[in-house]
Amino acid sequence: MNRFHPSEDDLHAYLDGQLDADRRQAVEAYLAANPEVAAQVEGWRKDAQQLRAALALPRQAPNPRLDPVAIRASLRVRKQRRFALAASFLLALGAGGLGGWQARDMSLLAANPPMQDALQAHRLFAASPTVDIQVHRSGELQAWLDQRFSHAARIPDLTPYGFTPVGGRWLVTEQGAAALLVFEDGQGQRVSLYLRAPSTLYPSMKKGQRRDGGLEARYWSRDGYNYALVSQDGDPRGEVLGKALSF
């Protein structure tokens, strides 16, 4: 008899509490028998909580509605409502209606600047000694990345620019898996490359850059993924590295 082996979608659904009882028990049995996978799933849970806490402004007392599972469920409901509102809008299109809808989308974009999660992931994890893989050559990092992102762009050798690969860490977003790739120069300064599936607000991003709290993010979309290179604000190597990474 074939042993049950949960897919990544099963594991994410397990984290979100979206599995039926039989499926949940099967996943729990698998995790109990595979402590390495269980530790990775627990890491996803903690990463999601840390990212959500870092993105929550202003800081507030613990609130059940800020729990990652509740937030994901709320986002799904909001997405469904947006589709319903869009349908109603098409049926009741009138003078001034289009302008109001555009204003609403502009407000959402202003409240959620592009690749904010990349900046927060860099702050939280780029300097952390805990990574899912420690590497010394760019080829190792590429092989690790290809496990989750089959169409990811090739990672160039950054040693001519003074940076060597340190490691990578899997993260979780509302769209699924994300990856943080960390590089370091001879003085210990680090930059990170972050990628994930496109979000609802940013299905495809034009090349751009912005500054936030001492960091600078250069972001773009390519081959179905959103990317961001995060470096220290004002570091002239950021532009060179961005070009090397097809920014």
Rank of each mutant, 00 (worst) to 15 (best):
A95W: 10
L90M: 15
A84Q: 14
L85W: 11
L93Q: 13
A73Y: 08
S74F: 15
F89K: 02
P113L: 01
Q50C: 04
R82L: 09
R72Q: 04
E42K: 11
H136M: 13
A56E: 07
A87P: 00
A53P: 00
P114G: 10
Q142L: 09
R52F: 00
W144D: 03
R137G: 03
E140G: 09
D117A: 15
G99N: 06
A48H: 08
S128Q: 01
A111I: 04
H136E: 12
N63D: 10
N112R: 10
G43A: 06
D132M: 06
W44S: 07
Q134C: 07
V135Q: 02
N112G: 00
S128W: 01
D132K: 09
P113T: 03
R59Y: 01
A48K: 00
G100E: 15
D132L: 02
G96W: 03
R78A: 08
S138K: 12
K79D: 07
D105F: 04
P64N: 07
A92N: 13
P68I: 03
Q116E: 11
P64T: 13
A73H: 13
Q142V: 04
A70I: 14
L57N: 07
P129S: 07
F83V: 15
W44N: 05
P58L: 02
P114R: 04
D47T: 12
S138M: 13
A126Y: 06
S74N: 10
R104G: 08
N63P: 00
A70F: 02
Q134E: 10
L55R: 09
D105A: 12
M115I: 14
R81H: 14
R76T: 00
P62C: 07
E140A: 13
V69N: 01
L57A: 14
A70T: 15
A127K: 11
A110G: 05
K46G: 00
R59T: 08
D105Q: 14
G43S: 15
L91E: 11
A86S: 15
A103P: 06
A110T: 05
L66Y: 04
R52N: 15
D117L: 06
L51E: 02
D47W: 00
D146C: 02
H136I: 05
R78M: 02
A95I: 15
D117V: 12
P62S: 07
L108M: 11
A48M: 05
A103Y: 05
P62H: 01
G100V: 00
S107I: 03
A53I: 01
R81Q: 13
N63T: 14
V131H: 04
G139M: 08
R65Y: 07
H136S: 15
D132S: 08
P62V: 04
A84F: 10
G94M: 07
L57S: 09
A54E: 08
D146S: 11
W101C: 04
M106W: 11
G139L: 12
S138N: 06
D67K: 10
